[in-house]
Amino acid sequence: MRLLLLSDIHANQAALEAVLHDAAARRYDRIVHLGDAVGYGPHPAEVLRTLRDLNVVGVTGNHDAMLLDYADGRRTARESVVSIALRWQLERLSSDDLALVRGWPDGVDDPEVGARYRHGSPASRDEYIDSVTAAREAFAGWEGRLAFVGHTHIPGVYATLNAPVGEWIKFQGFPEGGSYLVPPGARVILNPGSVGQPRDGNPRASYGVFDTGRGAFEVFRVAYDVERTQEAALEAGLPQVLAARLAIGK
């Protein structure tokens, strides 16, 4: 089985379209969305409609959860860029859109693949695995072998390797894309990066493909029409920083 792995689209329809076009030639059997379909960007309804049409396996991200908090009156409005974008998006989403987001669980254990799908870490939607130290803590609190996460907006792999001193944690990043074969006996946390708002200095959209038969993880970087998203964000009156950062991958 081949999994198409998407994460952190953040209401960027131009990036999502470019990724889906690129992925069509690579063959996949199932699409897994690792959270944060909404937040930041100007196309929340379009992105959710696309994900609904694709019948993705989805989990909630922290921005998805915050959107529902605003919808249900559990969160107080703030003047942060996160709050401004989410409240603007909420006004443009239908009941069907919100129902889709409500239907995504906090995490999914996939027995067919033998993997856990979660936004932040195998143990938490909100934790960041952005260092070897954070990865070591995540491995200590989770007994599985294979996990797919997002949240950092940076594609990479954290892997455990046996060493004379005990379990050793290693990181491999994919700023320009690349591939990784899961070593026999290793435990791994795989991150396909962000479709809609990369943060590793490369503005190209990032996504992953995992071949369960070969244990092969591939990350691809795809150019998309950044200006289209920037113009839509500015026309919507969203904070300028949300448009500007797309061009530099930060």
Results as ranks from 00 to 15, higher is better:
residue 78 R to V: 13
residue 78 R to I: 01
residue 80 S to V: 11
residue 80 S to Q: 01
residue 81 V to R: 11
residue 83 S to T: 06
residue 87 R to P: 01
residue 88 W to Q: 06
residue 89 Q to M: 13
residue 90 L to Q: 08
residue 90 L to M: 08
residue 91 E to V: 04
residue 91 E to S: 14
residue 96 D to L: 13
residue 96 D to W: 05
residue 99 A to N: 11
residue 102 R to W: 10
residue 103 G to Q: 05
residue 104 W to D: 01
residue 104 W to P: 02
residue 106 D to H: 11
residue 107 G to W: 11
residue 108 V to Y: 08
residue 108 V to Q: 03
residue 109 D to M: 11
residue 110 D to H: 11
residue 110 D to Y: 06
residue 112 E to T: 15
residue 114 G to V: 12
residue 114 G to W: 03
residue 114 G to E: 06
residue 115 A to N: 04
residue 116 R to D: 00
residue 116 R to M: 05
residue 118 R to Q: 15
residue 121 S to Y: 03
residue 124 S to H: 12
residue 124 S to M: 12
residue 125 R to G: 11
residue 125 R to W: 00
residue 127 E to W: 04
residue 127 E to S: 13
residue 128 Y to A: 07
residue 129 I to E: 02
residue 130 D to K: 11
residue 131 S to Y: 07
residue 131 S to D: 11
residue 132 V to K: 10
residue 132 V to W: 00
residue 133 T to K: 11
residue 133 T to V: 14
residue 134 A to T: 15
residue 134 A to D: 13
residue 135 A to C: 05
residue 137 E to F: 11
residue 140 A to Q: 13
residue 141 G to Y: 00
residue 142 W to R: 08
residue 143 E to P: 03
residue 144 G to F: 05
residue 145 R to W: 04
residue 146 L to T: 03
residue 147 A to M: 02
residue 154 I to Y: 00
residue 156 G to H: 02
residue 157 V to P: 00
residue 159 A to P: 00
residue 161 L to S: 08
residue 163 A to N: 05
residue 166 G to N: 02
residue 166 G to F: 06
residue 167 E to A: 13
residue 168 W to H: 14
residue 169 I to V: 15
residue 169 I to P: 00
residue 170 K to L: 15
residue 171 F to G: 00
residue 172 Q to S: 06
residue 174 F to E: 07
residue 174 F to R: 02
residue 175 P to V: 10
residue 176 E to A: 14
residue 179 S to E: 14
residue 184 P to G: 06
residue 185 G to A: 12
residue 185 G to M: 14
residue 185 G to C: 05
residue 187 R to F: 02
residue 188 V to S: 01
residue 191 N to D: 11
residue 193 G to T: 07
residue 194 S to E: 02
residue 196 G to E: 09
residue 197 Q to P: 01
residue 197 Q to G: 08
residue 199 R to S: 10
residue 200 D to R: 03
residue 200 D to E: 14
residue 202 N to I: 12
residue 202 N to P: 02
residue 203 P to W: 02
residue 203 P to F: 08
